[in-house]
Design a protein around this nucleic acid. Structure first.
Lengths: 212, 212
DNA sequence: ACTAGTGCGGTAATTAAATGA
DNA sequence: ATCATTTAATTACCGCACTAG
């Protein structure tokens, strides 16, 4: 009960209001090639110099506006004017409403995209970790296999290093002779495309609440 | 030189303004354990109902406010009051300014965090792709190695399937007998921790400009 | 319990700069 | 190139919630 001075009451304000945008403008054909009247002649609607300013649209007004926004975020001026007359609002107010609504929509979208991206990112981090482990494991197995092959070959020829499939053996050699457990795997053709910050710290949305 | 219409002019407005917030509060000791009782006495300051309201802070005022914001995002009331008197502003305006500034800072921070996260995410996607390829390659090699081992073993015993190191062989078997070229690798212990949308579409920031 | 003070989210409105026809 | 519209940034206010005395 501390500040109900003039909640959604009228507040007297000396404010020039944008013209009346009366729909009784001589309709000059097109929908996009007219409309000016910024230098409003204050007398319009309110007639007196003072205008009443309602601060906060009624639920009904908001509902209709919101519904229209659902249909199209950026309606034509004609649509806006029609809305204005239907709602008993100044066309200017409707225009302003849509502008602010778009801005709101945008930042909301940003937040949504952020959390979506965040969860995606997190799964990828986990996945990446798993893949790295997988690679290490496979390299180790490959090394063991190669050792086994060497053992079998040596056992067979006892000192001679000629085998039956040289191309495959060298192919295996190449892979198995890499130093295992390294975490980096060549960066074959994708160097320097992105810098890799590699900071896998997963912070929540807490930063929004700490200033400094 | 295009918009000096009435930049920092005055506009008459009927607005009750919160009291004067005199800075002559008796300082009661601590820095964190006081602060309450601003006793603003509403009718104060303006007393007359009409107030002058400057419609846009001067550069100087904004500069000082911005500087203060750099020091601390959420200054004490006393600090705000001091600022107000230094700048010739209503303490209310200063409070409002800080509030709006914080909101702005927050959404800006959100945008920054978003693009940071985005680039991180992109590098991870690339990395993940690379690792998957690596895994496939290694599995293939492992399969080849296992075939080679089988070949050598068969060649040696000609029909009998007893080898010299059974544990290692089964260990290799397990890995090499998985169907290669599959793109999924077990999901060992990490199932259902995160749902994996797996949509690697990399959209830019274009969505911000398309409504509908 | 009561009350004042503050922060925050949401919203309305205005202005400057960018864009478009 | 003027005029109209849109976006981004600002300023301000309300309503709610929380906190502290």
């Amino acid at each position: 009960m501390n500040h109900q001075v003039a909640d959604d009451e009228m507040v007297l304000i000396t404010q020039y209001y944008p013209g009346i945008y009366t729909q009784l403008v001589p309709q000059q054909g097109e929908s996009k090639l007219r409309r000016r009247r910024k230098k409003n002649k204050g007398e319009g609607s309110g007639s007196g110099a003072m205008m009443m300013r309602k601060r906060k649209l009624s639920d009904e007004q908001v509902n209709l506006l919101e519904q229209s926004f659902g249909n199209e975020h950026k309606p034509e001026s004609e649509r806006k004017d029609k809305l204005a007359s239907e709602l008993g609002l100044d066309p200017r107010q409707v225009a302003v409403w849509f502008q602010n609504r778009r801005a709101r929509w945008k930042s909301k979208k940003l937040e949504e995209e952020y959390s979506k991206l965040k969860s995606e990112h997190d799964t990828n981090v986990v996945e990446k970790c798993r893949l790295e482990t997988e690679v290490m494991k496979l390299k180790e197995q490959l090394l063991e296999a190669e050792k086994e092959i060497q053992r079998l070959l040596l056992e067979r020829f006892d000192g001679v290093s000629s085998n039956t499939s040289p191309s495959m053996s060298s192919f295996l050699m190449e892979a198995a002779m890499e130093p295992p457990f390294l975490g980096e795997f060549g960066m074959d053709g994708l160097d320097n495309v992105f810098y890799a910050p590699d900071n896998n710290y997963v912070q929540g949305l807490d930063w929004v609440n700490l200033y400094i």
